[in-house]
Design a protein around this nucleic acid. Structure first.
Lengths: 155, 155
DNA sequence: TATAATATTAGTAACGATTATCATTATGGT
DNA sequence: ACCATAATGATAATCGTTACTAATATTATA
């Protein structure tokens, strides 16, 4: 029975993608694992800086990208960072094309009735029971390839 | 029986917040209403520019903010525009504090079982039936005030 | 309808998060 | 230890968005 350390496992995951394990990458991952707060890049930068004072913000961003590709973390702001606008002010789910940025409404079928416009309040009420936050809004988005990008990415 | 035009209704909604109806604001709203594509600010800028050539990007952004406050449109990128990172790579819902930016996991109770980690695939499968997109991921987020901001905003 | 008070605009500069560049340094395989 | 290659740090560039300001438009009031 063969034991591998956590660090070896991280190294393995990086190697699969052709990346190397460096002390900067390990420090960034540890910093992220040390909190449940889902921090942003700057928080991680400040945290890691205590250990590696000369690390640069660029390295943080590069590292977060690498760790993401290796499946070691998840980024909570997908796709383009621009805001998009909708003249329909009722809360309803969207589907976002990760290739071309197109955003459609999700036509609602039965299994998603929870998320139908008008039911928004009900869903938030349910979520309220699970947290001490005062919930005022929510957002459900699906990501994938739109019909166009789906066929043209078949190359 | 008293009829009011759509434009009067828009004006009324703006006035409630102390805003005036200008041709720029009307043009931005019309541009947004003319499409189902949930465009970004630049798309709207290019569209409105055909009608009001000297309009500036700043006006677009200011106007979108005003229309949002008046409840005439919805912005699809809430809170800070920075990315946040999570060492838990399994898809799970979050609650975001709109005041301080804190992000917590949503502790799952029964009514939200659809969204429990491990069930992600099932939810995406259901959504797939309602669209021609090839769905690969999704995201459910709740917004509100965290316990701390909730009590300190009681002033 | 003039006038005054205030809101809005266009144009431009500033900002801030993120990316790109590139010379130097670190890493892993031989 | 040596070599090929990947990664880093420092800095400059990018780009969406905001802030600033003088000029203009709108609304309320006389």
């Amino acid at each position: 029975m063969q034991m591998i350390t956590e660090q070896e496992e991280i190294s393995r995951r990086l190697n699969i993608k052709g990346y190397r394990l460096t002390k900067q990458r390990l420090a960034v991952l540890k910093a992220l694992q040390s909190t449940k707060s889902h921090p942003d890049a700057n928080w991680i930068y400040e945290k890691v800086r205590k250990e590696i004072p000369h690390i640069s913000p660029g390295t943080i961003y590069r590292t977060l990208g690498v760790l993401k590709e290796a499946g070691l973390l998840r980024e909570l702001d997908y796709g383009s960072s621009l805001s998009h606008y909708d003249a329909n002010t009722e809360n309803h789910p969207h589907i976002v094309c990760t290739n071309c940025g197109r955003i459609d409404d999700l036509p609602l079928s039965l299994p998603l009735a929870h998320h139908a416009p008008g039911q928004a309040h009900k869903l938030e009420e349910q979520a309220s029971k699970a947290t001490d936050f005062l919930i005022t809004d929510h957002r459900l988005e699906f990501y994938g390839l739109c019909p166009h990008c789906r066929s043209s990415s078949a190359d």
